[in-house]
Write a protein that binds this DNA or RNA. Structure first.
Lengths: 252, 252
DNA sequence: TCAATCCGATTGACAGACAATCCAGCAGAC
DNA sequence: GTCTGCTGGATTGTCTGTCAATCGGATTGA
């Protein structure tokens, strides 16, 4: 049990970080290695590195301004997170996601996100519900503005809120591990004409079900949303397959 | 597309490694780092390091006979796999599994293993079915012999076969990530009098359902098995809580 | 045209060094 | 007597520099 300094400080902290269930007042010194992991993760998620790209250690050291040992530790972390692949004596590279890989991810997401939405409908606090609404609105704006990057990040945040309020940290942890690949798929499927709007409608339905505290409905609409996203992604894959047959065929 | 040397070689390989869906004929030079990860992983899984134990870098370097950079890379991998925790400036240690953590793992396993068993009932080959039967029999022998280590390893292998034949590598990947913690829980629950026998009966039921190519039944019995394992683990936790109240309460 | 060979680029691994940090134990102040 | 502040040893975080092993592509020769 951590010592508390004063009630008012506690209240401040609770108000300030209402969004993050676990209010955490520790000062966490960030190591170089950790910083590198975050930077690279973000770079991969945002698509700066393209699938198939090699990551040359010395180049990364230079651009990040860190030593090779630190970088290598970071690369091992990213490898364990499956964000990069490492071929012995060839070094790391960004994996290529085959359609079969994508399909399997959607299958798992149907299971987990359905469950998460149902649990969330029972467990979520009013504050977090408000945050969820906020993210939904942000997604709507991103959709209207046709801002691809914002669409991904707001959708990602919307689901992050559901996941962290589903009362199961393991589900959250697993989905977090899939996030890189999911975002990659989101970028593809959302680019299809009309998909973003449809996606919004489905997210709205999920939000409504959760707000109404209806776990069964939440489960249903969340699953359906993933299923639809999968269909959309499939179309996007077929499209790019026609455009570039060599791509999308290699396995991870 | 990799070059193939001869059809007969392919057939040999297909027969020889029917067990591992992805027949992989590359000679993979094992790096020191990889070796260390495996050694440490095995040590953790087999309980050589107890929860809460610190892992001091220089000590590990000495006992493993590797340099600190290599060891540190390995530790980062294990950290990303959540097999160890790393506190900044304090170093790595074996995490303590709270009952809530355990519960969440069982919840996820119910979802995933139910799904995996159902898919497996449809997809599994006759050869793999034979291997499954073999592992079931091995578990029976371990149970009869009251061999705790063999119980864990055979049960683990039994489920590994189901998972790798469920046609979804992501499910396999996720369960693999949970394996360390699952095995830890298995060790606890299996030690309860009568649980091993009950476990065998449930595994037998799962095997039968898969053999009969009955996905619905397989789904049901696999889920029930996990649910029962969870109840058993809960009892084991309560028991150890009475024995040592300080234990089992800390979070991951 | 094809095969063997060589070379540069890159990774794998190590040793050694030093600053930053943490912890436990001890001394001193209220 | 309890709390506070200091100190020293242990350990981690990070860097530099080095060398061998390996890979892929270019060159050379048949």
């Amino acid at each position: 049990m951590p010592k508390r300094s004063s009630a008012s400080l506690d209240q401040q902290l609770a108000a300030g970080s209402a969004a993050s269930t676990k209010l955490d007042l520790r000062v966490r010194p960030r190591s170089v290695q950790q910083e590198v992991v975050d930077k690279l993760r973000q770079a991969i998620l945002s698509g700066i590195f393209l699938p198939g790209n090699r990551l040359v250690e010395t180049d990364l050291c230079n651009s990040l301004g860190v030593s090779r040992p630190s970088l290598r530790e970071a690369l091992r972390s990213l490898h364990a997170e499956r964000l990069i692949e490492i071929i012995p004596n060839r070094g790391p590279h960004i994996p290529v996601l085959s359609w079969r890989d994508a399909e399997e991810i959607y299958e798992v997401r149907e299971l987990l996100e359905g469950e998460a939405a149902a649990r969330c409908a029972v467990m979520i606090s009013e504050e977090e519900l408000e945050a969820l609404k906020d993210r939904l609105e942000a997604f709507r704006r991103a959709m209207k503005a046709d801002d691809a990057a914002a669409r991904i990040s707001t959708a990602s945040e919307f689901y992050a809120i559901i996941l962290r309020n589903c009362g199961n940290k393991i589900i959250e942890e697993i989905e977090c591990g899939l996030l890189a690949r999911v975002n990659f798929l989101r970028a593809r499927s959302m680019s299809l004409p009309g998909r973003a709007k449809k996606s919004y409608d489905e997210m709205y339905a999920t939000f409504t079900a959760i707000k109404n505290r209806d776990p069964k409905e939440a489960h249903k609409v969340a699953r359906r949303h993933v299923a639809n996203a999968r269909t959309a992604a499939m179309k996007a894959y077929q499209k790019s397959l026609r455009a570039c047959p060599a791509d999308c065929s290699a396995s991870t």
